[in-house]
Amino acid sequence: MHKEDCFYLGKIAKKFSYKGEVLAWLDTDDPGYYEDMESVFVEINKHLVPFFIEKSRLHKNDFLRIQFEDVDSEEAADRILGCELYLPLTMLPKLEGDKFYFHEIIGFTAVDERLGDIGIITGINDNSAQPLFEIKKGETEILVPMIDDFIVKIDRPNKQVLLNTPEGLVDLYLS
């Protein structure tokens, strides 16, 4: 499995017991959705390695307590401590309406209600306080804040994100 075919689920945060159980912090709004997984990919030395789960259950709402097959001691748990967890993209829950995963809208056309087609979404910059759509129009890169008030509709069948940006925001890039 290649990393680009997967999504980041979380990381192994700490050991839980002397029998190799670990606590994994999950980067999700609904950790319970992942409680009954059979396996997960653990990134070890930049490679995704499948680990099979004997049992797991939620622990204090944000963590998943996991007992992996063949991880039956503190020493074995130490070897995977801090490792990131991944799952195939096909395991993401389907989102409806105007909710979307960042990777899902890459390649969609950004259409402003006032300006029309303003370019292709090439990425999402989430390194700032407010995530930004990275939109490419010819040689110009346009950055639009991902604010609910700006997003009118996610049109999956037509691969479009319909936006209503304030006057001047996008015009600044296109002039």
Rank of each mutant, 00 (worst) to 15 (best):
M37Q: 08
R114M: 13
I80V: 10
I66T: 03
L48R: 03
Q130C: 09
L89M: 13
P145G: 07
G116F: 07
G116K: 05
S73W: 06
V40S: 00
D29S: 14
N45M: 15
I66Q: 00
D27G: 09
V49G: 06
V40W: 00
Y34V: 06
E43K: 10
L85M: 11
P131M: 08
D36L: 15
L64G: 01
D62E: 13
Y18H: 11
I106A: 05
F63E: 02
Y34W: 12
T28D: 05
V144Y: 02
R65G: 03
V42C: 07
I142T: 02
F133C: 06
S17R: 09
I105E: 05
L81W: 05
D70L: 12
I147S: 13
K55W: 07
H103A: 15
H59T: 05
S17N: 15
I80C: 03
L143E: 15
E69G: 09
V144H: 02
L81C: 07
S56A: 14
P93G: 15
H103N: 13
Y34Q: 05
F100W: 07
L87S: 04
E35D: 13
E113A: 10
I53G: 02
G107M: 07
A13R: 04
N45R: 10
K55Y: 11
P93K: 15
G119W: 00
A77I: 00
F63R: 03
E104R: 12
D30T: 13
D117Y: 09
V42F: 02
L115Y: 07
G32M: 11
I142D: 01
F52S: 14
T109H: 04
D27W: 04
K14V: 06
M37H: 03
V111G: 02
D72K: 06
N61A: 14
D117I: 12
G123M: 05
L48Q: 02
V111E: 05
A13K: 07
A129G: 08
E21H: 06
F51Y: 12
E84S: 10
I124G: 04
M37R: 07
K60W: 07
V144N: 04
H103I: 09
I142G: 02
K99P: 04
K136Q: 12
F133G: 01
I135C: 04
E139Q: 12
R65T: 04
I135T: 01
G107C: 06
V42G: 01
A110Q: 01
D70S: 12
V49K: 10
D112F: 03
I121H: 01
E35R: 15
R79G: 00
L92V: 10
A76E: 11
D117Q: 10
L95N: 12
I80F: 02
V111Q: 07
I118S: 02
L85W: 04
A110T: 06
E38V: 08
F100S: 06
L143M: 14
F52Q: 13
I105F: 05
N45V: 07
K99W: 09
G119M: 00
L81T: 01
E96I: 11
I53V: 15
D70I: 10
I66P: 01
